[in-house]
Amino acid sequence: MNLVSASAPPIVEFKDVVKRYGRGPNILENINLRADQGDFVSLIGPSGCGKSTILKLISGLSPISDGSIVIDGMKPVDAREEVFFVFQEPTLMPWLTIKENVAIPMKLSGQHNGQKRDQIVAESLALVGLTERADYYPRQLSGGQKMRVSIARAVSTSPKILLMDEPFGALDEMTRDHLNEELLAIRQKQQWTAFFVTHSVAESVFLSNRIIVLSANPGRIHSEIRVDLPYPRTEETRLSPAYQKLVGEVSALLRSVERLKPAAAHV
């Protein structure tokens, strides 16, 4: 997938980034990370390793304490318009219809006018297969459908970078597998770079070309695994021995990282 040569400027670059809140201990330290255009980076690690915090730093919602982050040649706060966040919850406005919900980010930023906006909303809903539900209200949808709307809303802004914080964590496994496939299908069409936080090793292997494993207290990058399975990935991918092998390796790695945690953390 790395069509861009290694010498091209990275879309995201962390240099010696440190994050702490107030005078508290470092949440993250010594983070050096670069992602190229089109990368799908999963962040996994024990709880408290700061993987969600990395997303917040990229989005500019939270400032760094030390080091530097460059997003597409800009500071994170200046790059906000290129980045979109998908939260754990669908965060839909219950009083708006599905299509109105999808239109909200464009409305807030004043992006596009009426007709163009409607067209984008329709396209985005089509991407997640919810065209029929455009005039429904959120309470009429299932959990998986709401998450689809959330994703449609995210991609409607044509972000360069999509940040996803365990978006499918609350869904059952079958729905999650479906949505993973849909997500990759959308990515085929929209060449965004993704940062994806998850607890599921299988999900991270299926989606990503790079998996970054973090260790906790303080959060540091422990290791990185390249996933060289070819895209597009489908149901067959999950059955392939290469996939199975990678899942096993990453799980083992994650277990070893868990063991690294200081004893105190278990108390």
Binding site: L61, F84, F85, F87, T91, I104, P105, L108, S109
Partner: peptide, 18 residues
């Protein structure tokens, strides 16, 4: 107001008025 929704609005660079 649901804090998740407030976070979402802030992420979208919504103004206080919005």
């Amino acid at each position: 107001t649901d804090t998740n929704l407030v976070d979402f609005f802030r992420m979208c660079n919504a103004t206080k008025r919005q």
